[in-house]
Amino acid sequence: MADRRIVMHFPPTMIDEPIISGLVKTYDLGFNILRASITPQQEGVMVLVLEGTEDALDAALRDAQEKGVRIEPLEMEIVRDEDKCTECGACVNICPTEALAIDLQTRHVTFDPDKCIACELCVPVCPPRAMQIAL
């Protein structure tokens, strides 16, 4: 068994179609949705982990792409520019994995790169743009 961390972008016309459950059944996959949202242009964005055999995963992603879903792997690294971070906490609820967390006693905001899945959701949300994509 293998797992894939991916970002799926659904075009507006497909939002109501039960794509994921279809894939999961057809290819016998396990899945864990880390975050799902719908943009104002009605594009659906889903960050998820899919589990299955390598062959099944390849076939499932090909299938989804043929149906019009855009798929990106989650493989960039996200870093925090410590000089820029003001420790406001605006990023904490956006982060699906608690890589960004606030200590409720000290009010310090911590970033744990080991928990980060590089979903990038915090990048535009951070007001001083301290969360950055390292290429």
Binding site: C88, G89, A90, V92, N93, R107, H108
Partner: peptide, 13 residues
């Protein structure tokens, strides 16, 4: 409902 602070308490201190 989880709360999102925008003001930095650490800096305020």
């Amino acid at each position: 409902v989880p709360t999102t602070p925008l003001s930095s308490y650490v800096r305020a201190q």
